[in-house]
């Protein structure tokens, strides 16, 4: 029985679920400062607003698990929001078609990312930063830098932004589905295991016969598709396609995924941690606005959280690698052989 107790204790430790404790502290703090905070309406507001960020975060999990950054999700979000709005205004008011169009446009960027990273072998951080810039520019060029407004209370806006069950709108439902699907993929299937193997040790994955490039391409397409879906929802929320909407989701989504990696799974990118981190982020930002903090404070909150999260995941990649090298060199001679070389 004591081992069960130890297990429970271990899984409730600050290192495992610290974000949940911080979240509770935040809720307590905001409730004390502002009596209108501790209400169901605040809860639904956080979820409804941050479901879109959550979807982007869920998409990001896949390339990150496979060891790739996808910085283009912000630009993809802008692209798909514009595409959906354009279809609504110019082609059809069918909700489904508009969403599909947005996702399809996003997938094109996913293909572009795959080519740049996996065929041209450009580093993922730089490569997706570049495609992000190209996509943003293309959207501005095609739209003349104008937003495309549509009827907010039409089918599209109503279905995706207003209709709700117990106060929760469509994006929350989609996020829930995304969490479950991604969790299943990453944690219950061989696909997920292989993806993590690629991200941690590409060479191990390659020697294990895993189709590294194919799986990475799939992860990039998935991340683009989810960012695309998020874009169509963002358009519905404001009743317009907006080419500049991307950046405000990019950073929080990354913050959520990296902070999430410090939760539950010992440094592994995982959907549950990311979901908790989105809640934490949303609660903090909504709370700050509710207590009357200036509108720039949420950005500081997100930025600080991202730094904290990455610092918690062993000081980022470079630091970790340097540390690893140090450790392996330090102990290499304990049973020393000359290090062999692989070409």
């Amino acid at each position: 029985m004591s081992s069960v107790a130890a297990r429970v204790k271990g899984s409730l430790g600050v290192r495992k679920i610290g974000a949940i404790y911080v979240w509770i502290v935040l809720i307590a703090f905001f409730s004390l400062v502002n009596s209108t905070f501790y209400e169901y309406a605040t809860f639904t507001q956080v979820l409804n607003q941050y479901a879109i960020t959550g979807l982007v975060a869920m998409g990001l999990l896949l390339p990150l698990a496979a060891g790739l950054y996808d910085l283009s999700v912000g630009a993809v979000l802008g692209l798909s929001s514009m595409t959906a709005a354009w279809v609504l205004v110019n082609v059809t008011t069918n909700v489904f078609v508009a969403v599909l169009a947005g996702v399809a446009a996003a997938l094109i960027v996913g293909v572009l990312n795959s080519v740049v990273l996996l065929v041209l072998r450009v580093d993922s951080f730089i490569g997706t930063l570049a495609t992000s810039s190209i996509v943003t520019a293309a959207v501005v060029a095609l739209s003349g830098d104008n937003v495309i407004a549509f009827e907010v209370f039409g089918d599209y806006g109503t279905w995706l932004g207003i209709h709700n069950i117990i106060g929760l709108t469509m994006p929350v439902g989609l996020l829930l589905i995304a969490i479950l699907v991604i969790a299943y993929l990453l944690e219950r299937t061989g696909y997920g295991r292989r993806l993590y193997a690629i991200g941690y040790e590409e060479e191990v994955a390659r020697l294990s016969g895993i189709r590294v490039d194919r799986m990475r391409a799939g992860s990039l397409l998935a991340s683009s598709a989810l960012a695309g879906l998020a874009g169509t929802l963002a358009a519905a929320a404001v009743g317009a396609g907006d080419p500049t909407v991307g950046p405000e989701y990019l950073l929080p989504a990354f913050a959520a995924v990296f902070l999430g990696a410090t939760q539950f799974r010992n440094g592994r990118f995982n959907p549950w941690g990311a979901a908790v981190a989105v809640l934490l982020l949303g609660t903090g930002n909504v709370g700050l606005i509710l207590i009357g903090a200036p509108t720039w404070t949420p950005n500081i909150f997100s930025g600080a959280l991202l730094i904290l999260a990455v610092a918690l995941t062993h000081g980022g990649r470079g630091g970790k690698r340097a540390l690893k090298k140090q450790i392996s060199e330090g102990s290499a001679d304990a049973g020393a052989a000359e290090p062999a070389k692989v070409g």
Binding site: G190, R193, R194, E201, V204, L207, S328, A332, A337
Partner: peptide, 21 residues
């Protein structure tokens, strides 16, 4: 000690089953 032998971040179970998933 070669690169390509095992994933340090994985558990023993995850490494052992990687080619027989």
């Amino acid at each position: 000690r070669m690169p390509g032998s095992s994933v340090k971040e994985f558990t023993m179970r995850e490494n052992l089953s990687l080619v027989s998933l």
